[in-house]
Every structure is written in C-alpha cells, then in structure tokens.
Design a protein around this nucleic acid. Structure first.
Length: 589
DNA sequence: CCAGGCTAAACAAG
DNA sequence: CTTGTTTAGCCTGG
C-alpha cells in the first residue's frame, strides 16, 4: 500500500512542502474508473513503456548509517486503543533489560531463549547469520518454510513435516556457508559470544527436544500462512482509500473555507497502521491527524508521567483565543467545536456517519460501509508544536544503536504534536486548577511512522537490493495474536495494538542489526518478540517508547498482565493453535 | 503548485 | 521460486 519515496530526506524544516500532493492521485483515480476496463491502451503505453527498471541509484550516499528521516507526518493512535494511564511515578528503568537481552534467559528457566536460533528460520544454511553459525554449528537446514499454501488443506493444519533434515546437521554445508559469510561483526563476538555460547551449549539438547525440526517447520508454516492471510487485498485497499481520501479532502477543504478558528489547518497527517503498512486483514481503520500550528505557547506537564500537558497561550494566536479560559487552551472546547465543524461537513455525504463522542477520546470517528464492510476514519485534531520536545522525552527514543544518533537527532528536531486526550474523569483538577478534560497528550505518530517506514540499521533494509527483514511481519503477527486473544477473552480489552508496536520498538533497540531480523528467521524473531512482550507483561512495565516514565500497561493491572503473558506463552509453546484455528475457520488449512 | 518520479506491497505470470 | 505489472502514497524539481 503506501510507499513513501525515500528519494531524498526531506528535512523537517520545510513545513510547506506538503502541499497539494495528493491532487494527482485523485485525478488519476478519476480517470481510471474501472480496473477491468480493457480499453486502456493508452494507459498501458504510459506505464508499461516508460517505466521499467526503476532503480534508485541515487542516495546511496554515505553520510548516514541507516535511515534518512522521512518527514514530518503526525498523528496519534488514539482512542479506541487507548489504555494509557499515568504511571504513578513508575519511572521504568526498563532500558536496562532492553539492552541486555541475554539476561532474560538466565532468569527464565524453561524457555529456549535465543538458542533456538539454530532451528531458526528456513534460512538456507548459506545465509544464516554469522552469529548463529559461530555459536552453534548445528543449524538445521530446513528448506524453506514452504508456507503451506491455502490449498494444502488436507493435512489438517500442518504442512508436511519436512522430516529428513532432522538430526544430521550437515556440518559441511555450514562450514561452507560459514566461510562465505564470515564477516562477524566485532561486538558480536566480543560482547555476546561468551554468554551465548555457554547457554547455547546448555540448552542445546533441551531445545533440540522441545522444538524439533518438525515442529519448527510447522510453526514456520503457520506463521507464513497466517501472514499471507493478513494481507490486504488490493481491491479492498483501492476502494477504501478512495472513499477515505475523498472525505478527508473535503473535511480539510471545509475547515479552510468555512471556518474561522480552523481555517489554518495544515495538510492532514496520515498515520496509524494503514499508513505504516502494518494494517492487517482489512483496510477498515484509518487515522488522519489534522494539525494546527501553534506558536508562543507554554506547555506544562499535567500529572507526573510526562505524557499529558496543559497548554497556555501567550500573546497572539488570535484564532484560538476563543477556546481560552484563564490563559489555558481548553482542549474540550476546541475539540467540541472541531467536532461540530466536521459534522457539518460530513452531513453532505450521506454515506458517512459521525459516531458518538467518547469521553477523553481525541478522534472524531466517521464510519461508512463499503461493500458490506464498515470502514472507520478517525479524524483527530492536533496542535503542532515546533519547539523542542518535552524534557520527559530525554531518555526516550533510544534508537542510537539501531538507527543511529543522527537519525535520532533529526527526529527530535521535528515538531511534536498534542492531541485533546485525557484519562479518567474530565472534571478532575490538578494543582493549577486545570481540568483533566482540558489537557493534551503528546503524540509522536509522525516519528513512529517514519521509523517504521525506514526501519533498517542498513539503509537498504527491505529495499530491492538489500536484504529483507521481518520486523514488520513480526509486528503484524503480534497484533494479530493480540486481537485474537482479545476476541476470546474480554478481560484483555485494555490491551491494544499500540502495546504491540511499542514492544517492537523496544525490541528493535535491543536487537539492533538487520541480521537480527532476517526474513528467513521469522519464527525465531517472532518468538523473541513474544518473549519480550511476555516480559513486559510479567513485570507490569511497558514504557512509552518516547516517554519512558509513562507506563503503558499500568491501566490493566498486574493480574491481567500476567494472565495475558501466560496465554501468550502458552500459544508460543504450543505452536500457535490460535492461529491454526483461525486459519481453519477461514478454510485455509 | 503540480507533474512526474519513486517506493512498497499485492498480485499475475512464468 | 523469480520476474514483471499495477497502484496508493509520498517526494521533489521546476
């Protein structure tokens, strides 16, 4: 679905650059009405002819180790999934555990830890990463995961166990391969090798028993089939995006033309999983932030976790004065007015319905049916703040080891956003007499999106000539797992996909290299990601990736956290029966 | 401001 | 499997 040109890093400073870019797309849509039309000779000419070997030879620059910053988009992923609660001074130290993944293994007895890597992905021996090879020579050369395609149903759920390669670790192949890819990063040898090696030894047998190649192949198969099933159909995407873009454009137009207070809204920032290429199953949820630049403001923390703030207007800002009370920009007033305007506009489009206001939720949610599926669009008012990020973010976004210090700095030079979101009762006051309903929560959705779209430690990660990684697939699977678990147990309803996303971010910071996430190691990587998530749940601590002092899972309570951790562990150990069952229901296995 | 170029991802074909 | 085509979304040069 979405792609973003990586062509050039567009520095965050040019706020204008985002003008009417989408115009083109809309035009295109118009003139190409039917996918099935066969009269499009000219279409073919235009495309087929001129476009073929598009390769981006450009910017293989060297200046940045990893990513170029995408651009400032923004949003918040809010409402429906919100469960954040001020973290009673949690001040999670979490970074500690993040940075030393190995320790977990010592603590957790039965679990295979990364040793499992040996059984790792379908990787052909030749592409195993060096770490693995040096550590344990007995990799199993599973052929590929052969994600049993949908049709392979007969054998009820698991693909043919590719037995043969079971025991006879073909040393020869490995040595061979090893010789070829012998680049072995330094830190890896020095840093981890020691601990890993021991553990590898120790756990070797037990793992060999616990996860036989057969199981492993079956797991690979389930994960890959599940992923395939989570893909969004091209047609669905096309239809959904068309209606969503249309209404979005019209809302923006309305705000600019027919309102005073909102006439300065900027271009919408498309965020959330659809625009991060992480939407699963169906394109039925869209998030669009509608930013208003605010200058000359005072931003003061509300509560102690650093996620919520009150906003005071200094002089100027005439347009927003009307939402002011005692110098405070009242989120509730502003959102209410925004909502009215959106409703006014949407009234003209009969297919769309504005859903009822939910307390504390920053989104104006619109829904409509497209071919019997309900699509929802969250339109979120937000303030765009160009000054430096709140000090609570100082220890957040620890991506230096993963994406590099320069990328971090680039992101931190971008604006941040505030959305009219609060928790608990709106009429609760803080010391300064500000009501909860009038406070704002920070949002870094634009950075989340930028990172996910440019997520490799190498610049070429997942690009045509680079290796592909499984970071996003792992996240899709985790989101899917979480949503299936939630379906079956309503006590999990305070957990949301943002928890999954945050877990991935933390995981990427502890396993920083692209080779830690090789596409061929999907089942291993997913396994480790689940262990990470279970760890957060067990400890009852999942720090906001940007604001470490905010614990995202203080809401659900320890008991529910542990329960969820146990359920996930169970799925992991049993080879994901919940995925299997799901595939079964859909007749895909 | 916008036309045109580029990307990721779905998908079709071999 | 590999290779090519299509298309929504994004970016830039002019």
């Amino acid at each position: 679905m979405t792609g973003r040109g990586r062509g050039k890093p567009c520095k965050a400073k040019s706020p204008d650059a985002e003008g009417a870019k989408r115009k083109t797309r809309l035009d295109k849509i118009k003139q190409v009405p039917l996918p099935s039309s066969q009269d499009d000779t000219e279409k073919e000419n235009e495309t087929a002819n001129k476009r073929k070997p598009k390769q981006k030879q450009v910017n293989h620059g060297e200046e940045k180790p990893s990513v170029q910053n995408a651009r400032e988009e923004a949003n918040l992923r809010t409402n429906k999934e919100d469960t954040k609660t001020p973290a009673k001074g949690t001040n999670a130290k979490t970074c500690a555990d993040r940075t030393k993944p190995m320790e977990r293994f010592a603590v957790e007895p039965e679990k295979p830890g990364r040793t499992i890597k040996r059984c790792g992905g379908k990787a052909k021996a030749g592409e195993q990463n060096p770490e693995v090879m040096t550590k344990m020579k007995s990799d199993i050369p599973n052929d590929t995961t052969k994600a049993s395609t949908p049709k392979a149903k007969a054998c009820g759920g698991k693909a043919k166990p590719r037995v043969k390669f079971a025991e006879e670790t073909p040393e020869t192949q490995l040595e061979h391969a090893e010789a070829k890819t012998r680049k072995v990063p330094e830190e890896e040898k020095l840093g981890k090798a020691k601990t890993c090696a021991d553990e590898a030894k120790l756990m070797e047998e037990s793992i060999e028993r616990a996860i036989t190649p057969k199981d492993k192949t079956a797991v690979d198969s389930i994960l890959n089939t599940t992923l395939k099933n989570l893909k969004i159909k091209k047609n669905d995407r096309s239809k959904a995006s068309q209606v969503v873009n249309e209404i979005t454009d019209n809302i923006i137009k309305h705000l600019k033309q027919n309102t005073q207070c909102f006439k300065e809204v900027e271009e919408p920032l498309r965020s959330g999983s659809y625009y991060e290429n992480l939407k699963i199953s169906s394109p039925d949820e869209f998030d669009v932030m509608v930013p208003i630049l605010v200058e000359r403001i005072n931003v003061e923390p509300f509560g102690d976790d650093g996620a919520f703030y009150s906003v005071a207007l200094k002089r100027g800002n005439s347009l927003l004065k009307t939402f002011q009370e005692n110098d405070i920009l009242c989120a509730s007033k502003m959102l209410q007015e925004f909502r009215e305007e959106v409703k006014k506009c949407v009234k003209k489009y009969k297919e769309w319905v504005v859903t009822k206001k939910k307390p504390g939720c920053p989104a104006v949610t619109l829904t409509r049916e497209v071919e019997s599926v309900t699509i929802s669009l969250d339109v979120v008012l937000c303030l765009k703040v160009k000054s430096s990020w709140p000090s609570f973010t100082k220890e957040g976004l620890k991506i230096e080891g993963w994406l590099g210090a320069k990328v971090r700095q680039d992101h931190r030079l971008k604006p941040y956003y505030l959305v009219p979101k609060y928790e608990g009762k709106g009429n609760v006051e803080n010391d300064n007499g500000v009501l909860a309903k009038d406070i704002w929560r920070v949002s870094f959705s634009h950075v989340e999106k930028a990172i996910l779209l440019n997520h490799g430690s190498e610049k070429t990660c997942c690009e045509r000539e680079g290796a592909s990684c499984c970071r996003k697939d792992c996240l899709k699977l985790l989101k899917h797992l979480l949503s299936l678990l939630k379906e079956n147990d309503s006590s999990f309803d305070k957990f949301c996909s943002y928890h999954a996303k945050t877990t991935l971010f933390h995981a990427c910071c502890s396993r920083t290299k692209d080779s830690d996430w090789k596409a061929s190691d999907l089942s291993l990587c997913f396994h480790l990601l689940l262990e990470d998530f279970e760890g957060h749940l067990q400890r009852g601590e999942l720090p906001n990736f940007f604001i470490p002092s905010q614990n995202l899972i203080s809401g659900p309570g320890r008991k529910k956290c542990k329960h969820l951790a146990d359920r996930i562990k169970e799925e992991r150990h049993k080879g994901f029966p919940i995925f299997r069952q799901q595939l079964h229901v859909k007749g895909l296995v």
